[in-house]
Nucleic acid binder design. Structure first.
Lengths: 208, 208
DNA sequence: TTGCATACTGTTCAAATGTACAGTATATTT
DNA sequence: AAATATACTGTACATTTGAACAGTATGCAA
């Protein structure tokens, strides 16, 4: 999509709005646009806004301060963005959902075409309990949020405030949390409800 | 940076601001926050905003409508770019440098803060010759370009038009290309110069 | 107890802001 | 020449909104 249908002056106005939004985090007011572009009347801006809205580039939210919505995805950065950022979870505060702000240690950028979908987050692996499936100490694992677990899935469970990766196995009516390393014993659960599943393993990132 | 210093209520307010900004493109007004969170007084919000500002999460722009700037990098649309794209190498055409355009199958987005530096490219692993070090069939490995190899390094070598990953070992004046899987025999080289080293292993990305 | 920080309600006022009314000017089209 | 779309100025007014004042309540530490 190009901006070709806008007149030069309308483009100036539109660009100013986009730039202001990228700089400050919110759209400009009518008067800020006027001042920024050297107009002496706020009404001039209004007129332009109306025309730009007619052409479909923005939506004017009547009565709202700074009520300009940019309808097309015209932020300067990320014209075509192949990346997405997911939170990297550190220690898990008791009682909080795993992706609560308290737990976020930073953000990891992923390749969108590799890791699709919603509800992703990342976790740094401590220990060698999953070396059997190629997940090593220090690896970052990518998790998709999920409250339940299917038989055989590798899931993140919250144990004593730590998010740990285990294979979820149902057998003979019992539930096991299995570490993919013979040196670690399985954790046997009386019932599936006694643990909190936070998500399902979808990827690994390792740096040497 | 962690967000642990915010009280639960302050987090509700902060999250609401971020969400509103991501939904509409601009921050909410004090009254919109009050309504959204069920407060009856705008002043309650103001009080929270002041405390959140003190803790450094936002900046309040005095007198400006919707004048809330989110100082930390908590916008969904990343203000600054944490990603970099590296070529994904497919089959290697004989005689061409490994990252020649002919060989490029696509691009992979990496996290800049994890994979720093120049000369990176990616390779899809075929086979299970490196399972011993947690690299599985189908994994994408991240490689840094490099013509030489040190003893013990894992490097990409071009063998018969295929880029393959091997550990480079010098012992007793001989050079071995070692697969980290007992099922594969070492390749013994008469001299180091008889093979072409393309780069050194720096990372792994896996999708389940 | 006495603070003290947090978490609120309710009201008021002034500044910021959207919006309408009334014009002017300059091209381009009919 | 008349009509039309664009590009403006200038002013006024009603809302929206930030910001201040005056309180209440609660849990927690000194």
């Amino acid at each position: 999509m190009t901006l070709s249908e806008l007149t030069p002056e309308q483009q100036r106005v539109f660009s100013f709005i986009v730039k202001h939004r990228d700089d400050t985090g919110f759209p400009p007011t009518v008067r800020e646009i006027a001042q920024g572009l050297g107009y002496r009347s706020p009404n001039n801006v209004r007129q332009h806004l109306r025309l730009i809205e007619q052409k479909g580039y923005i939506r004017i939210l009547a009565g709202k301060a700074r009520g300009i919505e940019i309808t097309a995805g015209f932020s300067m950065e990320a014209a075509d963005d192949h990346s997405c950022e997911v939170p990297l979870i550190g220690n898990v505060a008791a009682g909080k959902p795993i992706t609560a702000i308290e737990n976020i240690d930073g953000y990891v950028t992923l390749d969108k075409s590799i890791f699709r979908g919603e509800g992703l987050f990342a976790l740094r692996i401590k220990g060698d309990s999953m070396t059997g499936m190629g997940i090593l100490d220090g690896d970052i694992v990518v998790i998709r949020k999920k409250q339940s677990a299917e038989n055989g899935e590798v899931v993140v469970v919250i144990i004593d405030g730590d998010a740990t990766l285990k294979r979820f196995i149902k057998k003979d009516g019992k539930v096991f949390l299995h570490a993919e390393n013979p040196a670690y014993p399985d954790i046997v659960l009386s019932s599936a409800s006694s643990i909190q599943v936070a998500g399902k393993l979808v990827g690994v990132i390792r740096k040497y």
